[in-house]
Structure formats: structure tokens, C-alpha cells
Design a protein around this nucleic acid. Structure first.
Lengths: 215, 215
DNA sequence: CTTTAAATACCAAACAAATGTATGTAAATG
DNA sequence: CATTTACATACATTTGTTTGGTATTTAAAG
């Protein structure tokens, strides 16, 4: 078998194996050979045919992890909602999405992989922050939000909800996580962005309740 | 010269060189040989005599960077101050300290070195957060602070002031940095911890004012 | 529809560079 | 004076990357 008809499948297999290993052992201590060994018969040449360096594999892995379909596209054209309501809807969609994909990021030991952690912070800032900013400014314009810190809040929401709420970086049990989330809600409220309403708290509670206890 | 009388000096030289290179080029692309080349005559054997791996050099470097003398020891026994005042004094000391050491962390391209960035987050959480927590709880007890989110705030202050205020991770010019800092102050205020007073704002303003413009 | 040329998916092995080790030696220590 | 220590030098090993080759698919031409 010298040539496969469906190379995309091979690429996926490589990324799956790499992601698993990077998360388990970290980028540095994962060797190309480790990846090859998980591929079932494929060779190192195959890997280097699809990716030109280990670095590039890492980039592809983090792209795939953090460029999940973002909920902002779905709410943007909802003319029936004001800025604040769009924000809330986006949060809701995102939350049920994460619940469905069985808490992708939450359970992951990102602390083991500094590169991935920083990539996550970076991609949040690049991709999510502008969307938050747009909606906050829309809310400021239509009167549903009142803040002079639109930019700051747009940067903080993704930072807090995805880094600060990562139990592998900031250890916390269920109750601790809930308390943190209430803090964020109350804080945003007092800063003029009453983002979290009961339906969101309910979703999040349910989400944390299903979270497995980890040491 | 086969044996040196003062090996500590050699160790320091190694750490200096390693730190410089790690920050310039990142951990991965810094080779042991690169470090050796900056050592003026010393050999690879010397490095491996003092550190048993490149990894261990990295650990030593980050230890040295982030275990700076913390200001909490100095304020703990000040019986004349209540919890809030101790917090404020600690912030003040820390701020003038950073100004004196010519903005160590602020100017550093930590984004280039994910390992160091994560080490920083980690060490902040391990070392600074407990100190903040202690003083916040003291303030809660003596009535100078009123919050049910002591733990959360103790975790957030170092996260925000050292990660979110890092321009190499969250790009911002002078005005942007000031605005962020005002946000933090106001936020803490509304959450029951009126930490930032005029004297602190003045210090911080001055600090940012001296900051070099970096695109 | 068949033939043929080109591109591609992959393998096996060699390469190069970087990390790490073993051994030796002279100065310091006690 | 014996031992430990701070290095140097040469060597071994690991690991990322490159190269050359082969079979299969795809595309073009007949």
C-alpha cells in the first residue's frame, strides 16, 4: 500500500494522536516517533509528508482545538435582540455547546502544556474579544448596557471564563467553580454589563454539577 | 584553571545567560551550546556539572525571576494598620519596587516563552494569592473590607495585575494600560475591596508614564 | 475507454544537530 | 595527604529533519 485514497483521514489520525500525546506528556517530551507509534503502521515519512515540522503539527492541533464554531455568527443578525440580549444568547449557546461536547476544555490538563495554554489565551484574545467588543458597543448604543470599559470587559470575559475557570490551572471543586462564576456575574453587573441572568446561572450550575470530581 | 574558588558565581553566570537567551529566543530554540558560548571560556561540562538538564536550568531561571522579595512580609506585623491598609501598603511597596528595578516584567516579551508565562501564573497563584487572601480576611474581620469573595479576589488580583497588564500578551499603549488599571480599581471597589486610593493611582500613573512605547 | 504522464501518499534509511554521559585532571578543602 | 569539587574533553544517544525511492491514484491525451 504505497498510496491512500483518503489522505484527510491520515491527517486527522496524526492530529488526534498528537493532541492526545501533547496533553498527556506535553509538547517537549512528545517525540515524533511517539506520534508515529500511535498511527498503526504509518511511518515517520508519512507524518513529514503532511506536516513540515513538529512545530506545524502543534499549530494545527491548537487551531483545531480553539477555533471551535463560535456562537457569535448565529446571534449577529438577530434583529429582534438588543446588544445585551445578543451577548446573553451567545453565552447560552456556547454553554450548551460545551456541555454537549462533554466539557472539552474544562477537563483538560492544560497546565501540562504551556504552549497550548498560551495559544488558548492568544486565540481567545484574537477571536473572541472582538466579538464581545462589538456586542458590548452595540449594547452601549442601544441603551441595554452602560459602561465606559467596553474594551476592558471584552478582554476580560474570555480571559476569566476560559483561563480563570480552568480547574487544572486554578484548582477548584464544584462549589468553588460556581462561586467564581457568581463572582464574574456580579462583577459584570456592577460594572454596567448585567450579562448573567437566571437562565444562564441555571445552565452553568447544571454544567458544573455534571463535572467529575478531580482530586 | 581546573577548579574555581567561587562556584556560585559560575552558577549565576549560567542563569544570567540562560535567562537572557530564553527571553530573546525562547526555550526551544536556545541550545545548551548557545548558553555555553555566552559564558566566556567555560565549557558544556561546567553547565552539566551544575545543572543536570536543560529543564533544570529553566526551573532555576523561573524560580529566580518570580520569587522576588515580596512586600507582604514587611507589612504583616504593622499593628498600626488594618487589613485594607496593609493591602494598600503592600501594593505601594511592590509598585515602587517594580519602578526601581526598571519594570522588570512589564517590558519582557513573555509571550515568546510560554513556559515562563505559565510559570509566572503558577507562582503568583502559589505565592501571592495566599498573602492577599490572608489580608483580605483580616480586613473582613476588622471591618475595613466587606466581601464574600475573598478567595476569588485574592486569586484575581495577581492574575489581573501581572498577566492582564502584560502588554506583550494583551497589547496596550500607556493610556490603555492606565484605563485597565482604573478598571481594576473600580471593580475591586464595587466588590467591597476599596484597595486603590489616590496615592496608588499616582504611583501607577507615574510608572506607566515612564513606560517606553512599544508598538 | 484505454493509455500514459504526472502528482501524490507513503516507506525506509540516512543525516545532522542537540542533549546528555563518561572519564580525566587540577585546584581547593578539611 | 586524602577527598571532594569544578571544571574540560571526548564520546554516545536521542530526536528532528531530509532524501531517494515505490506504488497508487488522478488527469490528460489518444
Amino acid at each position: 500500500m504505497a498510496r491512500n485514497k483518503y489522505p484527510e483521514i491520515t491527517v486527522e489520525k496524526i492530529l488526534d494522536a498528537a493532541q492526545k500525546l501533547f496533553l498527556e506528556k506535553g509538547y517537549d517530551s512528545t517525540t515524533i516517533q511517539d506520534i508515529v507509534d500511535q498511527l498503526g503502521g504509518l511511518s515517520k515519512g508519512a507524518v513529514y509528508h503532511h506536516f513540515k515540522s513538529k512545530e506545524e503539527i502543534m499549530d494545527a492541533v491548537s487551531d483545531r482545538m480553539f477555533s471551535a464554531n463560535n456562537p457569535f455568527d448565529k446571534v449577529r443578525k438577530r434583529a429582534d435582540l438588543n446588544g445585551l440580549q445578543k451577548l446573553q444568547e451567545a453565552i447560552r449557546i456556547n454553554q450548551s455547546d460545551e456541555a454537549r461536547t462533554s466539557m472539552t476544555v474544562q477537563a483538560i490538563p492544560l497546565a501540562r502544556n504551556p504552549r497550548l495554554l498560551v495559544e488558548m489565551i492568544e486565540s481567545n484574545r484574537r477571536i473572541l474579544t472582538p466579538h464581545y467588543l462589538e456586542l458590548i458597543e452595540e449594547g452601549n448604543a442601544d441603551g441595554s448596557i452602560h459602561t465606559e470599559y467596553a474594551k476592558e470587559i471584552a478582554e476580560l470575559i474570555p480571559l476569566l471564563t476560559s483561563l480563570w475557570l480552568l480547574p487544572s490551572v486554578f484548582p477548584a471543586d464544584k462549589e468553588g467553580m460556581k462561586h467564581k462564576f457568581y463572582f464574574i456575574g456580579q462583577m459584570l453587573d456592577k460594572m454596567g454589563v448585567p450579562l448573567m441572568d437566571d437562565s444562564i446561572y441555571a445552565l452553568v450550575d447544571e454544567f458544573f454539577e455534571k463535572m467529575p470530581d478531580q482530586k
